[in-house]
Amino acid sequence: MARSARSSGEPEDPRLAQIRALVRATPPEVLDRISGRAPWRRAVSAAWSPPVLLVAALIFTPLYLAYASSAGWPDGTMWSLLLMAMAAGAALTFAGYLRVVDGRPRLGLGGSPCAAVSGFFPVVAALALATTTAPNAAGMPATAAGGWMALGLVLLGLSNRVTGAIMCPPRS
């Protein structure tokens, strides 16, 4: 529903542009305050919408299973629970990068096309890292598996901002 038949580049119907401007004139923060809605609820639903969470779960569940099995998951150690928490954190962080505002991914930066493009590099790099460091047949020690997961999460967040800062300098 609510699909627009307008193709990109085609000028928008001025009546629709007026409606869009009318609806967007009130900032969401003001709407929250008028409605008595806690601001974090809008932030959470915007950052982690169900489709985005589904994508993140599809990506991170196999990673979790791979790491957890190498960390003693079949034996029921506590590491599997810790890894589950780490994987959930990684999935939520990744889902936050996929947040879409006005049809463009924000990727935790500023929502500009430049920021969106630059944000993909660390995501791809992190996925490549996760793939190449998958546990081998002999199994990875639990501490190493957990460490890689945590380190990957931190690097993902940092590199996202670093590439954004390098590629998308603040406008003067």
């Binding site: 529903m1 609510a2 699909r3 627009s4 038949a5 629709l16 542009a17 409606i19 869009r20």
Partner: peptide, 17 residues
Amino acid sequence: DTEAERDLAGAAGITSI
């Protein structure tokens, strides 16, 4: 009616009904 007025619903940012 969001079915009859899809463009209007889109412009108003309607994502659920």
